[in-house]
Structures are given as C-alpha cells and as structure tokens.
Design a protein around this nucleic acid. Structure first.
Lengths: 327, 327
DNA sequence: AAAATCAATAACAACGTTGTTATTTTCTAT
DNA sequence: ATAGAAAATAACAACGTTGTTATTGATTTT
C-alpha cells in the first residue's frame, strides 16, 4: 500500500490536516514543522493520491491535447515541443488521437483543466465547459474560444518580400491546394496576395498543386514545373516535406541551389538546417509557437485570458544558404 | 454541479447504495428497480465521477501507451489502430510521448491499469508494479513482462521463399542497418538467414544500407544499387517509406516493376495498396498486430496472461502486382 | 492578573463512489 | 397463520485528499 498523509502524520506526531497544509506549503503551519514534515514525507517516498486530490479539489493540473489525425505528421514536431513545454510547468499533458468528440469525452472523464485542439478542418463548437484553445487559422467568425494563428498570410508576405528584395520577379509556389485544410488554403491565399502586393507579373507566377504534403509530392512537382515554358528564379515551398522533395527533384535535374534557382520553404523548424541543402525558411519558429500555445492555455485556465481573444503569431524568416541575389 | 448517485437516489426514492449497485448491474437489486434507476440516471444525464470511482475501487479502466519517439512515424498507423481497438473495449487509452521514465510517472499518477510500451532501443526494466507489455523484438533475456514480437525473421524467410519460388536468385535488401533499433537489425539478420537457407549465392546478394527509414533514403538507395556491377532481379524493401522511395527511384531510371525487377516490401499495412505501384508486402497485418496487443494487454491486466509469456506473431505475405516470375 | 489577540495545530466534514454489513420486506414451507 | 429463509434494500464505513471550523497555548494589551 502507498504512503498517505495519515502515515506521515503519525510519524511526525501531528494531525493529518497539518501534513496536508505543510505539503501544500501553507503559511498556516510553522516553518519548523513544515520542514520536518516535508523531510519525513520525502524519506517515506510519499506520492500524493491523484484521485483523492482531484475529488477534493476539483482540479487536475492536466492539459489535454486533441490531435485526431496523428498520421498527418506535419505537426509532430510541434506536439513534441508542446509536451516539453507543458512539462516545464506544474501541468501534465495527455494526448488523445481519437476523433474530436470521443477525445472530448475522454477528457471530460479525466476532468482535465484545459484542452488544446489541433483543429484540422471544421471549426466546430466544442460542447464543453472545459476551457479550450485552438491552434489553426483564425477565420474570425464569432468564436467563444481563443485561437493561436500562425499567420500564414504574413509569412508569405515576408517570404515574397525577401525574394523580391533579392531581385526575384518570377516566383513559383509549390503547395497543396487540393485539401480543405484551412492552413494550406491560407498559405496559398497569402502567396497570391503577396504577389499582387509587390506587383509581380501574374504570367510569370506559377503555382503547382502537389495534391498532398509529402516528400514525393514535392518531388513530382519539380517535373511539372519544368514542363512549363519557362523557369522561375525562385520557389516558395509549402511545407517541410514538400520542399524536401523539391530540392531532391532539382538535384536530379542538375539544377543547382542557390545558383540556378532560389528556394524558401514554409515551416520554421530546426530540421530545415539539416537538409541536403540547408533551407532558408519562413514561419513562426516552432519553439515560439509551442511556448505561446502553452502560455495561453494556462492563462486561459487560470482566468487571465479572455475566451474570444485570439493571437496572431509573428512569422520569422530564417536565412540560410538557399537563396541568391538575382540582379 | 454534476448529477451524482445521491441525486438519482432521491429521485428514485431509494438509497444511494442501491443506485450504485443498479448502475453496476449488480444481481443484488431487483430487475424492476434496476431498470427504473437506469432510466432516471439516463434522463438526468448522469456521468459517473471518475476520480471518485478510482478512489473507491482502485481501478481506472485506462491503458497507457508510451511512445517516446513520436517523430518516428513508422508506428503511427499501429498506434492509431491500437487506439481504435482499445476503444472497442471498456478501456480508455491515453498516450504519452515523453521519455519512458517521465511517461511512467504520469501513468503512475493516473493509476492506469496497464501500460503498453513501444520500446525502441533499450530493453529497460520498468520500475513499476503496473502490469505492462512491450512491443518489439523478443531477445529472450530473462524478462518479467510479456512481449509481442512481429517476428521479422520469419517474415524475411517468407518473403525470400516467395521470391525464390518465383525463380529469383539475385535478391537485394534495402534497409537501415546503421541504427541500433532492434527491429531494423532483426530484419537484416532475418534476410541473411533466409538467403543462406535457400542457398542463394552470397556474391549475388547485395545489401544497401539506407542509413535511415525515410522515403528519400530509399530513393538514394536505388542509385547506389545501380552503381553496382549487376542488377538484382528482386528487391526486398525494409519499410513502407523506404520502398516508396525505391519504386520512385526505379521509375526515374525507367526500370519497370514488375517486368524489369520485382519488389516485396516489409510492413503489411493497407497503404501499400495505394502506392504508385501497389506493392506485394510481408509482415504481420497491422490490424492483427493491434488486436493482439490489445487483447494481450487486457488479459495481462485481468490476470489471465503470465508475465513472462511472449508472443511471436505470424507474418503474412500479401500478394499484389509488384513481382513477376523470373524463369 | 485577567482579557483579548494571535499563531499554531487539531478536528472534522466534505468530495462521489464502492463494497461490506445490517435491516427490512417478501416468499416458502409447515 | 407463522417461523425461517431468501431477496431486496438501506446504512455506513471506507478510499485519501482539501478546506473550513474548533481548540489549544502563547503573547500581547489593559
């Protein structure tokens, strides 16, 4: 049987309520006794009974993360970072990979204090009174929950600006336009807006639809791109994996980066530095994203964040060696 | 506030202990009253308080899955299937992606009834009295926990047998030999054993080390393979992703499957059917694997499985259109 | 030196279940 | 009809905490 506060109380010669207070560092108990109790507790290997705490306090210090589409890997780096980040706080994270409604049931059962939702397609209204926060594209409908938005539009603007200022006029976008995933749509829209903003000639702007976010989708896209009558001087890749395929495809055709063509990729993750060609990339650094998501969730739980508040993150361009001056 | 059994008791005009029994379908309460109570409970939207149940019964009906390396995607299909499978039972699954020791702490806190461990490298002794089961290569050291082993050796034997009987004598293995992952090592060992078993000439047997399990590792491997003085008539791909890269690499070189070369891939997952060339594959079907893992875990929890018992699964060859007769 | 104040600790009632024991009701056999 | 057994229900003590209220003992105030 496990050690309980009553066992500690006996050993310390105090009442168990005093032990409870001592272990919760209450100011109601004298420093001496407090230390004594804590020492004894440690010595006895005391581990609080979570169920009992939960029953008495109605709090769990647990955050649930709903990630219904685990097989879509793009987000695994972010999820891992969020997990790390949460475990720096007094909170614990549990992950559910079931469909949203089922995940919700699970988390209701566990009485988690807060929920992070990786919303893929629908912007459902979650039927729950557990505070929750969503990561995704803020479509600014009337919402009753906060969102963290990686601000794809701004990202694309910065990327195009960067290329534009290097003198590039013929820029291609390679990304997935076929999906209903708001993130992908938003990237594309952002690209088009940026092209217009910098008054780049439409007929020199090509867009390749990869119909997917995988490595080989990017690879295939290169062939399509080369089928066109002219070559762009720069490519904007829609995701880490797509860009990976693209650089491999270019290598296959003996097109050299950055001498023959420049490339910027969406997704600001450290892995970008370890690619065959370390890629200049754009996007909110994944660490920032994770930190902000966790910070906001905890704020939300603790009542310091308005539920309708929504945060657009600031994308950063991380320069590497994949772009050259085109003038 | 939530509905409790006391609320139901009041409404039904019985004592709350009767309600508890009724809701647990005890034979100690008359069918009439039972039905009445259940109806009322439903009407009132009763949801049992998990913490209270846990505190009183010491059981959670929760299974924890430890998957420390989420970013290695090979297993995500299996994890998803396991989740589905568990949710067909009265159990719930939660997933932890932290390092093993931290995951264990979390699961101890939650008092899960059982743990499934996706062991990657080390075969650690988990310091816990929670029953747990491991998925991986059974090295048959003295173990105190059961293992589910996908039996790579047998799989490779079956794959080579299949190719051998089609008349293939020159078979190449393309897989990751650089990692310390026992699964990869076991695949390679199995391949070599099979080659010896069928007395295939060593000097016609090539092995390409991909140094990784990704799509592009397989792609690269094709170039290496073609660098060799001769071409094999059949390839055994070490994983889904590797094989994906291989078939793309072959296509690039205008080598046709199955006319010019045959290919069998490890990993028996449904996705194999949707590849550019639907691949004949070998391995324990992922559904079987998931079912068995869940079945065994629950058996273990409920005391019907000996802790040292270990299960070698039966790999199946799934024939598709990627191999041709070579005689 | 008695009264009032304060600090420290103890006592105890929650929290919402389960499971055991005690009591009441209903049925059976005479 | 009535004792005795069986079935149905009620009562109540756990489970291990937290948080509120009560008690004690020491310190200050008058």
């Amino acid at each position: 049987m496990n050690v309980t506060i009553k066992d500690i109380a006996e050993k310390a010669g105090v009442s168990y309520s005093t032990v409870s207070k001592a272990l919760n560092n209450s100011s109601l108990v004298k420093a001496d006794t407090k230390n004594n109790i804590i020492t004894i507790a440690k010595k006895m290997g005391y581990k609080p009974n979570f169920a009992a705490q939960q029953l008495a306090s109605k709090k769990t210090k647990v955050i649930g993360l709903i990630w219904p589409t685990i097989e879509r890997v793009v987000l695994s780096t972010l999820v891992t970072k969020i997990s790390d980040e949460i475990h720096k706080t007094p909170y614990t994270m549990i992950l559910s990979i079931e469909p949203i409604q089922k995940s919700l049931d699970t988390f209701k059962k566990f009485q988690v204090d807060g929920i992070i939702l990786f919303e893929e397609n629908t912007s459902i209204e979650l039927d729950t009174d557990i505070p929750f926060l969503s990561y995704g594209v803020d479509r600014r409908k009337k919402r009753s929950y906060p969102m963290i938005d990686p601000n794809h539009e701004k990202a694309m603007l910065k990327a195009v600006k960067y290329l534009y200022e290097l003198g590039h006029k013929k820029i291609a976008y390679i990304g997935d336009l076929s999906s209903t995933d708001p993130m992908q749509i938003e990237k594309y829209n952002g690209f088009i807006k940026a092209i217009n903003f910098y008054r780049l000639p439409q007929d020199h702007t090509s867009v390749i639809n990869t119909h997917g976010l995988n490595w080989y989708d990017g690879f295939d896209a290169v062939n399509q791109l080369l089928g066109n009558s002219y070559l762009p001087t720069a490519i904007l890749g829609g995701s880490y994996d797509i860009s990976g395929g693209v650089i491999r495809g270019l290598k296959e055709k003996n097109i050299h980066i950055p001498d023959d063509i420049s490339i910027v990729s969406y997704d600001n993750i450290p892995q970008m530095a370890n690619m065959e060609v370390p890629l200049t990339c754009i996007g909110v650094p994944v660490d920032h994203l994770a930190k902000e998501i966790v910070r906001s969730t905890i704020q939300l739980i603790e009542g310091d964040l308005q539920p309708h508040q929504s945060i657009k993150m600031i994308p950063k361009l991380q320069e590497r060696m994949s772009c050259s001056d085109s003038r």
